[in-house]
Structure formats: structure tokens, C-alpha cells
Simulated scan of single mutants.
Amino acid sequence: MYTAQMTALKYIILFCMFCGSFGIEKHDSYTKLLNRIEALEQEQRDSRLKVERLEHSVNFQSKVIQSQARQIKLINEELFKTNKLLQQSNRMSTSNNRKITILRQLLFQEAQSKHNQKTDGSVSGMGSLPKQKEQKTQGEDFVDVQRPRSQAWLKKRGAPTGDSSLIKRQERAGISFSVYLDHDLTLGPHQTVKFNQVIINDGNGYNTNTGVFTCLEAGVYMFSFFIGQRSETDGVTAAYAELVINSQNMVDAVVETYHQYQDLQGGNTVIQRLKQGDVVWVGLMLSGHAHIEGSGSLRISTFSGVYLYQ
């Protein structure tokens, strides 16, 4: 509309100039006016070009933003998949740790069995005679004195039977426990984690109602604990746990999650000499509240202890 008006005005002025109805002075002023009109038209054309360039730039930036948004979406999907793989890896690691623990126990039992057999053989050889055979009195059969004797055979004849403390410890039931948490907990600082499900509790030293192990016999014990945590929201969520003996902190564990639905586990192990009546438990430390994950199928929050030696 503006361009059409300017063009019409220009033609009217030209028409008046050629008709001779204006003087020379008026002719000069109208020439200046026409030049001004042409300058304004040029500025308008330049402005249009700038607007078109800006529109092109805006469209290009919009496409770039859309492309970046798609890339961010793909990255988020990859992060989600990676988090799932990490969760699966953590579960596999937990399972492998359990298998390793079982294998270690089996190896320890096998080594202890070989040690006992070796002890039995050395003890039976101590009472051997220079002769290979001796004849029993009162009509008994001949007995090969070089053959290794059993513990019962040696005990019946009053012979020494190896390390008495080791034999005594083997004869009694033993002291050990392993428990886990089968439900989620939210606890405050210095509250005790009550692991309520028992895997083994030889000696009944662990109390599921209080979450406390009471030492039944003085000696050296090994304790280990693990705390699991699952984050329900994005952001850092932390749980700080400690193993306590007689209200004294021994070792600590930290679990920090950074993403929603992330499962992590933290724990620690300690070997300590205890006196009869000493108490041991796992509790939370620092201020605030912490969420601990527990499950009957995924047993990632556990507490274990075993008597080693006097």
C-alpha cells in the first residue's frame, strides 16, 4: 500500500512538471522531493532484504534447535539403557560376590578337613612300635600299629588327639550368623538397622528384634555388612552406615545414587577381638534420614559375623 501511494505521488508530480504549471523554483523543489521518495523506496527495499535474511536465519536456527532436541532425546534414551545395564551389572556383581563367599567357605572347609586328617595321621604315628605288628593279650587279634588311627580309637586308648582347643571348637556347634533385610526402611541418624531375616544363626547370638549381635564367647570375630539403596528421584541421595561395637564406630560404608531407579550397594568388613557380652550392630550415621532397600528376592542389605579363633 505504501509503495503504491509513493508511486502515484511521483507520477502526479511528473505530470505537473511537464504540464508547465509550476515555476522553475517549484520544479527544483519537486525534483528534490522525487529524489527523497526514491531514497525512501531504496531504504524500504533494503529493509525487506534484512527482514528476509532474518526470517531465513530464524528458520535455520529453528531447524538446528529441532535437530539438537532429537539428539538430546537419543542421548537420554542411551543413558536410560546404560543405567539399566549398570543395574543388571550390580545385581550380577552381588550374585557373584555371594558365589565367591560360598566358594571361599568350601575351600576353607576343605583345607580344615585336610589339616584335621594330617593331624590325625601324625598323632597316630607317635605311638607306633619298632615292630610292624604286635600281638594283643587275652586272645585278641593282631593289629597293624602303623595304620593311622581315628580320633575315637586314640581317645579310647588315652592317646593325645592333636590340638585340644581345635578339637573342642569342632565338637561344639560354633558361632556364626548371616541375616538380611526383606523390606525397605527409612531411618534417622544413629538408628539401628534391624535385619529381620535369618540365613544362619549358630549359637543364637543375633537378635532379629533388636538387630544386635551379642558375643557368646571371647575371641576374634569377623563381621561384614552391606547396605543397598534405590533412588526414586533424580539427584543425589546418600546413605551413610557404620558398624558399631559397644557404641564405638569400627568401619563405615557409603551409598550414593545420582539417577532415578538407580540401585547401588556399599559395605565393609572388619576383624576384631571381642569379650563375652560385647554387642555389635549396624546403624546409620550423620544427620537427616536415609532410605535402605530390602527385598526377599534381591538380598542386597545384609549383616554377617563368624567366630574365627580364641
Results as ranks from 00 to 15, higher is better:
Gln229Ile: 09
Val279Ile: 05
Gln262His: 00
Gln5Trp: 05
Gly305Phe: 06
Gln170Val: 11
Ser21Arg: 10
Leu74Val: 09
Glu55Asn: 04
Leu154Val: 08
Gly296Tyr: 07
Met1Thr: 06
Ser93Val: 01
Gln191Trp: 00
Ala39His: 08
Asp202Ser: 15
Lys114Arg: 09
Arg36Gln: 15
Pro189Phe: 07
Lys156Gln: 12
Leu34His: 11
Pro148Met: 09
Gly211Trp: 01
Asp184Leu: 00
Ala111Asn: 14
Glu134Gly: 09
Leu34Lys: 07
Leu129Tyr: 05
Met126Arg: 14
Phe108Ile: 13
Asn96Leu: 14
Gly139Val: 06
Arg149Pro: 00
Glu256Cys: 04
Tyr258Val: 04
Ser95Pro: 08
Gly139Gln: 09
Lys99Thr: 14
Thr233Arg: 06
His291Arg: 11
Ile300Val: 10
Phe18Trp: 08
Gln66Ser: 15
Val179Asp: 03
Arg53Ile: 02
Glu77Gly: 04
Gly203Asp: 02
Arg104Gln: 13
Asp141Lys: 03
Val306Gly: 03
Cys19His: 10
Arg48Asp: 15
Ser95Leu: 07
Ser47Phe: 09
Gln146Glu: 14
Met250Pro: 04
Gln109Glu: 12
Tyr258His: 07
Ser287Glu: 11
Leu40Tyr: 02
Ile37Pro: 01
Gly219Cys: 02
Met222Cys: 12
Leu40Asp: 07
Lys99Gln: 14
Gln117Trp: 15
Val270Gly: 13
Phe213Glu: 01
Lys26Gly: 14
Leu274Ser: 11
Tyr2Lys: 09
Arg45Ala: 15
Glu134Cys: 06
Asn116His: 14
Thr233Ile: 08
Ile72Trp: 01
Gln191Thr: 01
Ala152Gln: 12
Gly288Glu: 00
Ser95Tyr: 08
Gly23Cys: 06
Gln105Thr: 08
Asp234Arg: 02
Gly228Trp: 00
Ile75Glu: 15
Thr119Ala: 06
Lys84Ser: 09
Phe108Glu: 14
Ser113Lys: 06
Leu106Trp: 03
Glu134Val: 10
Gly188Lys: 03
Asp202Lys: 11
Lys136Thr: 04
Met222Glu: 13
Val282Ile: 01
Ser297Trp: 07
Gly235Trp: 03
Ile292Ser: 00
Leu216Lys: 12
Ser67Lys: 03
Ser150His: 03
Arg273Cys: 04
Leu33Asp: 14
Gln87Ile: 05
Leu14Gln: 03
Gly125His: 12
Phe18Gly: 10
Glu43Ser: 15
Arg273Asn: 08
Cys19Tyr: 09
Thr94Ala: 05
Met250Glu: 11
Arg104Ser: 13
Gly139Ser: 12
Thr94Glu: 07
Gly139Tyr: 08
Gln87Trp: 05
Thr192Asp: 05
Ser178Ile: 02
Leu33Ser: 14
Asp46Ile: 09
Glu140Arg: 02
Thr210Val: 04
Leu106Gln: 11
Glu217Lys: 15
Glu256Tyr: 03
Val270Thr: 15
Gly219Glu: 00
Leu129Cys: 02
Ala111Ser: 14
Met6Thr: 07
